[in-house]
């Protein structure tokens, strides 16, 4: 469970003397592992999807078991979930929030509205057609609104992405 599953190199056996507790791994893997298991989310709700995000955080779906803890400040958070329609008035604020977050930072675009404008795609004179016009997005979750299960799936996809981070560079060089 957890830590041992993610290690690429075997854990050396020990003889319970306390001398041989050594885990050999690359620094990248260790960093990625710790990042993906404590993705602190910025508690930031935009629209309808925010209520589903709240449902996901509440007792029934319990987002915290993935290490996702809502933080009120962008400076302390690793992932921002764009949960709802981004309007033109809000877009500059979303961008500013994203810029305030410390690296490494990830973006989940939750719901059709923030993916592409959703149902407001055609006549929405005040709707930004896709949050990716202002900030880069890591994971897109479709749905209007996505079910809590879909949000959890999106989070796990993001964890996979974080786990593979830096790996391709390591192998190509």
């Amino acid at each position: 469970m957890g830590f041992l599953d993610h290690m690429e190199l075997p854990v050396l056996p020990t003889d319970k003397t306390g001398e041989g507790n050594v885990i050999v791994t690359s620094l990248d893997t260790l960093f990625n592992w710790s990042r993906l298991s404590s993705l602190w989310q910025m508690s930031f709700g935009l629209a309808c999807c925010a209520i589903e995000m709240m449902s996901t955080a509440a007792a029934h779906y319990d987002m915290m078991r993935f290490g996702v803890i809502p933080r009120p400040s962008p400076r302390q958070s690793d992932v921002i979930i764009i949960s709802g329609t981004v309007t033109l008035k809000m877009a500059s604020r979303v961008k500013m929030l994203y810029e305030q977050m410390a690296d490494p930072k990830y973006v989940i675009s939750m719901g059709n509205c923030s993916n592409c404008g959703g149902p407001y795609w055609e006549y929405g004179y005040h709707v930004l057609r896709g949050v990716d016009r202002v900030i880069p997005v890591d994971v897109y979750i479709p749905g209007c609104p996505p079910r809590p299960e879909a949000l959890l799936e999106g989070l796990m996809k993001l964890q996979e992405k974080v786990r593979a981070q830096g790996k391709d560079i390591e192998f190509t060089e």
């Binding site: 033109l88 008035k89 500059s92 404008g117 055609e122 004179y125 005040h126 930004l128 057609r129 016009r133």
Partner: peptide
Amino acid sequence: LLEEDYPGHPLRKYFKEPDFYHGMKVPN
């Protein structure tokens, strides 16, 4: 509801949305 610098009054029948707003592309 809209920002002070938003061009026009959108619920008039012949309103056309702006192409760009604060550097963001608006229409599809």
